[in-house]
Amino acid sequence: MNKDNIMEVKGLHKRFTSKGVTVKAVTDVSFSVKPGETIGIVGESGCGKTTLGRCIVRAYNASEGEVFYRTKGGEELDFLKADKKKMKEIRKEIQMIFQDPYSSLDPRMTVLDIIKEPLKANFPKMPKDEMDQRAKAMAEKVGLNPMYLMRYPHAFSGGQRQRIGIARALVIEPQIIVCDEAVSALDVSIQAQVINLLRDLQRELKLTYLFISHDLSVVEHISDKVGVMYLGRMVEFAPAELMFEKPMHPYTEALLSAVPVADPTVQMERIPLKGEIPNPANPPSGCYFHERCHYCIEKCRTDAPALTEMPDGRLCACHRAKELNLKGFVYDEGAGAAQ
């Protein structure tokens, strides 16, 4: 494991089998994360981004592969092979924020109890007063009024509930937070509040985020590096601005061209994709994307390209990555966001 990294994912596979049919939800995904970074994972529904996130927090047991993790104490270990005792240690350091702020909170617990629950589970010997104090302090940090902590979740709006979810994840002071579509269910003005909050907390608490989302403009805003997934495979992994400005994988190019930009003067030429996403239980031969790709050559039909390092340091899984000159967004140096 590299000294600079907090986490390294190597050759991660996850297969689900049901009624004799095996679906490869995640196939051979590798990437590394530095402390304090935000990694965005994007892709269409069914591409395996949520499964990947769940494998990383070990909510699912991965079928194959390794996830190396460096604990606060500096210990390196393979997360997926850790025993129960070690697991408990690591769980304190990796937490998750869920998509739906309505179903991820127990309606029969008060907000204070919800925020305290991780403390009870992980530090059973902690005195009650301290637990209360910590939960209250965390609630304040995420912008909840401590007066309202004895209320139940139904009394809160979507944005406030997401803040409760964030407080619950942060109360045991983790290092890594997996945010699975954490802002997708929120309205735009509330979305901006929560994104700003996540960013402030990251600076203050030196958090590392794995930000899973289908919303490319949110991902571009929040991420340092972005991974694009297609049919269970990571097809490109690059610094955010580099990827949005100059994608190297044809799928990334098509995905970017489909994003509606909130500015009528920007008219992107859309690169249409042929057909639909193939069935993951019966993926195509060779490169999974070849049937829909405009740049497909004979080799793509038979050989699956591996995720390899490109001259500029990014990772890309395409036979023709180096020769293709793909279009991304034109970065406008002068103008900021419309105000």
Partner: peptide, 15 residues
């Protein structure tokens, strides 16, 4: 309009 990040615009620190 300000709370939506516009892809392709310079990265602003906060929305």
């Amino acid at each position: 309009i300000g709370s939506v990040h516009k892809i392709g615009s310079k990265k602003e620190d906060r929305l």
